[in-house]
Amino acid sequence: MSRVPSTQALRALESFARHGTVWQAADELCLTRSAVSHQLRLLERDLGFRLMNRVGTRVELTPQGMAYAQDIRSALALISGSATRNAARGISGALTVSCPAGFASSWLCPRIAGFCGAFPDVLLSLVTPRRLDDTSNPDVDLFITFGYGNAPGMEVELLKEVEFTPLCSPALLNRLDLDVPENLPDAPLLHLGTTEDWESWFRLAGLPEEVAQGGIRFSDMNLVYSAALASQGVAMGDEFICQQAMASGQLVRPFDLSILSPRSYFMVLPPEKSGNPASAAFRGWLRGEMPEG
C-alpha cells in the first residue's frame, strides 16, 4: 500500500496488542468498543492482510498482526520521543530538588538520567533534608516530601501512596525460618526513628504491639535498608522505593500482609518558584515515571 494508515487506527492496534481485549483498548483511548473494532477492520482492509483471528468468543492477533503491531509500537515511541526532545529544547536553567534520602537513592537516582537526557540544558541538583516533610530550604525549587501533605501556602500534589510490609534478605529468611508472623520476635527489628509502623503492622497481624519496641533504631532510611540487605534484621519496608530490591531478590517479603501508611509522597512547589520552566519540566517527567495505582 502507498498511503499511510490513520494514526487513530494504528494507536487502536497498538493498544489492542498490549491489552489483548477491545474493551481495554477502548477504555485507554476513550473510544467506544465499536469504534475500536471499526478502526481495526479499516486498518486490516487498508493493509491487505489479516491482523486478527476470532477464536471462540475472543479476538486475537495473527502472527502477521503481532509483528506489525510491534513495528507500530516502535514507530509511535519514536514519534513521541521526538516530540519530547523538541519540546525540551529551550528549557534551561538551574533546578534544585529536595527529596528524602531513601526515595532519592532507591527510586529517583536509578531513573534520573532519563530526565537529564530529555532536558540536557537543565542544571539539576538533588539535596536531601533532615526531616522527611521539610519544605523550609529557600534554595530549593521543588520539594518531594514524605508526610501528610501539610505545606500551607504552597502548591501540594499527591505523588504516591505507600504500603509498608516486612522485608529482609533471603539469607535471614532461611536462617530464622520466618514462615509465620509469630516467629518475628526471634528476628531483630529495624526501625526508622519510631516504632509506629511496626506497631501498626503487629496490630494487623494480631500480635502484641509491645514486641515492636525491641530492635534497632536508625535516623536514615538508607541505613535501615543497608542493615536489612546485610541480614542484620527485618525492616518495615516501603514497597514503592524497594521495588527494585524486591524484583532482584535482594529483599523478600516473608508475609503477604501490608499496611497502608497514613503518610504519602507529595510534590510541593513554593509559589515564588512556580515560574521556573525547569521545575515544570521535572514535575511532568516525574508524573510520567510514577507507576499507576
Results as ranks from 00 to 15, higher is better:
161 E>T: 14
214 G>M: 00
193 G>E: 10
200 S>G: 05
41 R>E: 13
279 S>H: 00
159 L>C: 05
284 G>C: 06
71 D>S: 12
49 F>W: 14
25 A>N: 08
272 E>Y: 07
236 M>G: 05
3 R>M: 05
100 P>S: 05
100 P>H: 06
239 E>S: 12
261 S>C: 13
216 I>P: 00
251 L>P: 11
26 A>M: 07
279 S>V: 03
140 V>N: 01
154 M>G: 02
77 A>F: 09
261 S>Y: 05
223 L>A: 14
114 G>M: 01
141 D>Q: 04
78 L>K: 12
276 N>W: 00
228 A>D: 07
129 P>Y: 02
264 S>F: 06
85 R>I: 08
24 Q>W: 02
222 N>P: 02
164 F>C: 09
34 S>R: 14
81 G>K: 11
86 N>I: 15
25 A>I: 09
88 A>L: 03
27 D>R: 15
66 M>L: 13
83 A>Y: 14
156 V>C: 05
25 A>M: 08
73 R>Q: 14
110 P>E: 01
176 L>A: 05
172 L>M: 14
123 L>W: 00
125 S>P: 04
249 G>L: 04
192 L>P: 13
68 Y>I: 03
20 G>W: 14
101 A>Y: 01
207 L>V: 06
231 S>W: 10
12 A>K: 06
271 P>L: 15
140 V>T: 10
80 S>K: 10
206 G>E: 03
221 M>W: 12
282 F>Y: 13
184 L>F: 08
202 F>D: 02
290 M>Q: 05
147 G>Y: 04
102 G>C: 04
280 A>G: 06
58 R>N: 09
136 S>E: 04
91 I>L: 04
61 L>T: 08
170 P>K: 08
127 V>Y: 00
205 A>N: 01
1 M>E: 07
260 L>V: 15
102 G>S: 15
216 I>R: 08
185 P>W: 08
130 R>N: 00
8 Q>N: 06
148 Y>I: 02
72 I>D: 06
149 G>E: 05
32 T>E: 14
137 N>P: 00
221 M>Y: 13
140 V>S: 01
172 L>R: 14
